[in-house]
Design a protein around this nucleic acid. Sequence first.
DNA 1: TTGACATATGTAATAACGTTACATATCCAT
DNA 2: ATGGATATGTAACGTTATTACATATGTCAA
Lengths: 129, 129
Amino acid sequence: MITVDLTKNQTLVLNTLSRASGPLSAYTILDQLRAEGFRAPLQVYRALEKLLERGLVHRLESLNAFVACAHDHDHAHGLTAFAICEKCGQVSEFSDEIVEGRLKDWAGKSGFRAAKTTIEIRGNCANCA
Amino acid sequence: MITVDLTKNQTLVLNTLSRASGPLSAYTILDQLRAEGFRAPLQVYRALEKLLERGLVHRLESLNAFVACAHDHDHAHGLTAFAICEKCGQVSEFSDEIVEGRLKDWAGKSGFRAAKTTIEIRGNCANCA
DNA sequence: TTGACATATGTAATAACGTTACATATCCAT
DNA sequence: ATGGATATGTAACGTTATTACATATGTCAA
Ligand SMILES: [Zn+2]
Ligand SMILES: [Zn+2]
Ligand SMILES: [Zn+2]
Ligand SMILES: [Zn+2]
């Protein structure tokens, strides 16, 4: 398994997300990286694009925000679901083969060719509920 | 079962979505309703808010867009999943009790209190694949 | 080494999506 | 009639994402 090095900007963005306790918007990342020389949103979006491709970062569609992958290595993701606490911002990442299978079954029966699936549960985590 | 009448603006927005062949953004709805006197985004967002509460409209988080509910009556929704064709824009709405149960199980084990769950499959429909 | 190509970066401007604030109107129950 | 709840009108603003164009850097083959 080959691992391509991250570029400078990709590394800065990934480190910012990894240090954060919850999801960050692209503009929050930008603000946190101004000290490192970032000046424009595109610098963040371009880095995010590559990090997303490699599965090192996930986009939370219901939040328009991004999180570092909870897994510590660059593994292939199956279908990943996210539980997002609306109080403390904590995000839990989990997979369920049965859910994945059922959605695959639906796609098979319907002739739908799935490219990307989003599962996001909004609510309150055990600590906050 | 009581049914509260929709207001004028709610009716206009719902009709616009019902006539559309796919999801519409709030600003597209606004543009289509300028002839009816709409002038500002808030007129659309306020109508959408009520329509979403009543389950007559759904928000597609991964698209920042809205669709009329595919069911012709104002029924209670279980967990609803959406399959969105990225080529023709067609949206299929379906439910799966097993998926719903598995996610509930995960929440139960984790102590997570779910408020709203989003499932969206992006890809190509049978006609477009 | 040089030129050609792909990839990465810098910057400004603009587009797209959503909310806050405040004023006015309408409906309905007392 | 009047007070409160709901709906509407309008402007201004805030947030999220993309387009366009220029510059820089790395790789590879001639
Ligand atoms: Zn992950
Ligand atoms: Zn929490
Ligand atoms: Zn529906
Ligand atoms: Zn299609």
